[in-house]
Design a protein around this nucleic acid. Sequence first.
DNA 1: CGAGAGATTGACTAGCATCAAATGCTGTGG
DNA 2: CCACAGCATTTGATGCTAGTCAATCTCTCG
Lengths: 249, 249
Amino acid sequence: MLGEQSVSASCFAENLGHLIELTGAESAALEKLEGRQRQLRRGAILLREKERGNELFILRKGMMMSYVILDDGSRQILRFMFPGDLLGSALIYRDAPETLCALSDAVVAPFERNLLVPIFDEHPRLAALLLVYNNIQRVALTDRLAALGRTSAKARIAALLLELRNRLRRADSSVTNGFALGLTQEEIGDATGLTSVHVNRMLRQLEQEGMIARESGRVTLLDENSLRREANYVNRYEGLDLGWLPSPR
Amino acid sequence: MLGEQSVSASCFAENLGHLIELTGAESAALEKLEGRQRQLRRGAILLREKERGNELFILRKGMMMSYVILDDGSRQILRFMFPGDLLGSALIYRDAPETLCALSDAVVAPFERNLLVPIFDEHPRLAALLLVYNNIQRVALTDRLAALGRTSAKARIAALLLELRNRLRRADSSVTNGFALGLTQEEIGDATGLTSVHVNRMLRQLEQEGMIARESGRVTLLDENSLRREANYVNRYEGLDLGWLPSPR
DNA sequence: CGAGAGATTGACTAGCATCAAATGCTGTGG
DNA sequence: CCACAGCATTTGATGCTAGTCAATCTCTCG
């Protein structure tokens, strides 16, 4: 279903454009990052942990995730990524700290990290926006940290469902309360620090309590308020205040 | 003990200077952020969650933490902060997403966030360095996420001990394997998602296994390799590759 | 010396993991 | 079109890790 959308010249510009109105010159500068394209099949690994690489990627179509595998073989999913998201840590590390993997068929635009230099040199407001974008991610990570450290299995799953719906909607405004989550229960478990067995039981419980409905991979949020209360959830794309940004150049 | 160190004109410049050699102009630009100073007593709250505020802070002396309190009253500590660290999320949010609290007597330099504008406008390399600094934090958070989601209580505590020692040493190179951790067991628990009771048992176990020694608030890492193996720990201030940064201006 | 905070210890419980088996779903080849 | 393989989901039985509750001990500081 994601395959048929029209895709703009720069998904990243469109994403950042949700935060603040970009100038033509700024959009043009961002477009340069998406000159190349690469198709990925569902399950394909774009970059493996500890692999060298100084490319970054903009996700243009589909859904991806990043994860790490620990010594005992268990996996922790760190982030889910949607169209318009910037992927990769080549900005700072020689060797990738996390694996990037496609959850659906996907399209990414790879680019060398030194392509960012002209953005810092010529577009201070975009540079600031990159920092803002990173900070949103950082705060979203702290929310998940609090969820894993201090909330119940049910709360973590409720939070994940809310987060996924919001992120999907951000990338595609036609998304409603019902959506295909595109994750197995094992993946949900690896994101929330649970086993797939327990994920199953908690989903069932949420269903029995009337908070969600499910049918063949699709989930519908029936009672968003209860879910939010259950989950302690905050949408970190709201409540922003970017009044201080430098002027565009 | 932190009280007697000499403090340079800009702690933040000194911190970033560990990443890359700064020019005089760059250091001078950063010094402007630390014009004012404010003393904090141990336990003092600098900024409360959900409070409005468009100031950021540079920590100049002492140790601080950020945390959130969940609906059920439980606390999750998100980060520990040391001299030279930049605190606060006023960069992006109107209302603080986390509480900032002093763990020891401390000194901070508060500054208005729009003081960052000239840095973005005139010092592209510093702007890039801010992004790098943020990314290091983001990756460190993903490490903790993986620890909370997928590792045992003992491993989380081992990881915390290693992290604290490394961060302390970064701020003060005279720190060795023995150090005063300056945290109660309850605080260790709130950082690792455990109860103080269980923290106590795990510390004891690490001690019995000869990995650490303890006496009245001080900890000594006796067997760093075992700890690292136990903890799956990676020092995220190493392995950096900043070769792409814009030229200084 | 007394008060209060933190550390320690023991007994018991609960939430989630583990193990195992059954069921359902999808795509593929005959 | 069916049979089957392979994966995901579902369910039950049981175990273990870490939480809860509560008492005691220690240390510091007025």
